[in-house]
Design a protein around this nucleic acid. Structure first.
Lengths: 341, 341
DNA sequence: CGTTTTTCCGTAAACGTTTACGAGAACACA
DNA sequence: TGTGTTCTCGTAAACGTTTACGGAAAAACG
């Protein structure tokens, strides 16, 4: 059914070696024969068998994005990832690489699936997201020497892998600055439980800014829950029950903000009127919520492209002769002022 | 670095054939040698090279889910898909298959990427979603004989492929019935443009139910736009400007509902008070929106599992000796009554 | 015209598996 | 003891590529 390189060779009465060289654009093949080979490839509808070339070359020409679920999260936080993946895939396609997204069941941390990808050599490199403070996936990969990069920083590993992250610390501080400038002094922070690194970074910025403004940090105004709607819904009442309730809340995430706003609504508190609300990572939800939520916007698609480049440079088989590998980059989040604060 | 079957053979002083047979659980191998092989595999940290076995067996042991973007949609409708994919992946894993998600750039209809997957034999079968009324992808696949299944129906193809769909027609009718029972007579419908099949089905049910209630269908109350927040936001004012504005709106999708509710809010119309709002496909957004949106809920995870089974049965290499292949199934959507109508 | 270089192509090995085939050894049976 | 059966394993081919190597023909050069 599917035509192989042998079919082409037989059809043209030349050897398979020549066919392969012609298709791969090698120099030592006559311009005329190459023409004929390419033409035959088109008419016979030939395209190379991936397993064959992977086996021979020891490279799969694909990279794996590990889509990691969190306990209590049925959505994988993907409204965030999709635009990122679009950029990633576009850049990879330029270099002839495929992007495969590897999913796991919620609750397992993919150590198993990651092992599987690495050991069966299903991809030439993997891309990790939602890095944790201490991330065993990173330890595993550095230890095995398998090429990888991360979306997000971590304290794990030899710090010698490419990573791209957003400046959550500055965003957290900027959010506080803005709220303080608008007269708020009691500002709450709702962040993910677990040791997701961006939660730490956000909180660090939040703390630093408060301290800079001479505002004492009230632990009662800091809450953490599942990084989804349910988490925000569950946890927001906690900060509202504090002895001196906040006049502003910063949510780490759009889903948590949605849940939090629901909890507020049930208490008769209207975001944008009775309570200032800020979200760190902007999504379409923030824009179309009523009131529209002030948020910090990442440049997701360019980030995807950039991380693709960084990843490519770290794969021996694809790294060009260019200079040194790019390592850590931290990109800014841009404030989008809307109606909720 | 990575150990191959040859390493095992050398280490145990037996032939690679025996090693392979032992690992694959064939009968013609001594129980003792099998034990030794499995042990050596563990200590030498062996796992089979995928490219090797794919090449030999002519099967990749993976199936491809084509994540198809729509023009104007940066989010791919994924809050819908993720739970589905979780179920799908779980069932596939049981049979030793990997799920790979193939993405494309928004705006292209993946005919190209689909070709690529099929022709390079990167997967043993593909899974299509967001089927269109006339779907060239289905035509292509039936024509080439490549195994596939679809999430959603279509008029294309020989109708001899497995498909699983939701009963959007009944949901549309049920939504109308419920609203009529609550006293509404002027009911609007906001659905996707393009010829996405579920948009047609929904509208068919809507029409049928209105007719059954003796309510004349007003074309001014039917609008279509991009299947995302922007689409709902843009299109909802249209139906509101009709000569006799609606007292209820049914949205085909959570994102469109979000955009639509924003448009309503800007007109000073409060969902649940001044306007009944119903959504066909339930998501966490519907639940945590204020007011919580009445919606029709699909059993996404079981659907994923079921479609995995249907797909498996259609792959010659994996189809068990069971009876006839399962073809079309239509699953119900369950009403979740909340506060918006 | 003889020698060297270049151009082009065929041969064959290799990547890591699986599996059809056959053969030796052990055993059962008459 | 001879014959047939069963158990176990080794041999080698095959899957579809890529590529190192060498060689024939053509071109260049003296």
């Amino acid at each position: 059914m599917a035509s192989s390189i042998h079919d082409l060779a037989r059809h043209l009465n030349i050897s398979i070696g020549t066919v392969s060289r012609a298709l791969n654009g090698r120099a030592d093949v006559n311009a005329d024969t190459r023409q004929r080979v390419l033409e035959a490839a088109r008419t016979l509808n030939y395209s190379p068998n991936q397993s064959g070339r992977s086996l021979r070359q020891g490279a799969t020409h694909s990279i794996a994005f590990m889509l990691q679920p969190h306990p209590g999260d049925q959505q994988y936080g993907e409204p965030f990832f999709i635009p990122f993946l679009i950029g990633l895939q576009a850049r990879l396609a330029e270099s002839g690489l495929d992007l495969i997204v590897v999913m796991g069941a919620p609750g397992d941390y993919q150590q198993e699936r990651l092992r599987r990808v690495v050991e069966t050599r299903r991809a030439d490199a993997v891309l990790l997201a939602w890095t944790r403070r201490e991330d065993e996936r990173i330890d595993y990969l550095t230890q095995t020497g398998f090429p990888f990069a991360t979306l997000g920083r971590s304290r794990s590993g030899a710090k010698s892998y490419p990573s791209l992250d957003l400046d959550f610390e500055k965003a957290g501080a900027d959010a506080v600055d803005r709220l303080v400038a608008r007269g708020h002094r009691r500002i709450a922070a709702v962040r993910p439980s677990l040791d997701l690194n961006f939660g730490y970074l956000f909180l660090a910025g939040y703390r630093k800014a408060l301290r800079r403004h001479g505002i004492e940090i009230d632990p009662e105004l800091i809450a953490s829950g599942f990084i989804n709607e349910a988490g925000g819904y569950e946890v927001t009442p906690q900060v509202m029950r504090s002895k001196a309730p906040p006049t502003a809340i910063i949510f780490n995430n759009d889903a948590m903000a949605l849940g939090g706003c629901k909890a507020l609504a049930e208490m008769g508190i209207r975001p944008g009127h009775d309570m200032a609300v800020t979200v760190i990572v902007d999504t379409p939800l923030c824009r179309y919520f009523s009131p529209a939520l002030t948020a910090f916007r990442p440049a997701l698609e360019p980030m995807g492209q950039r991380l693709a480049e960084m990843l490519l440079a770290s794969i021996p088989a694809f790294a060009g002769p260019e200079g040194p590998r790019i390592l850590r980059e931290v990109w800014p989040l841009e404030l989008v002022a809307r109606d909720s604060d």
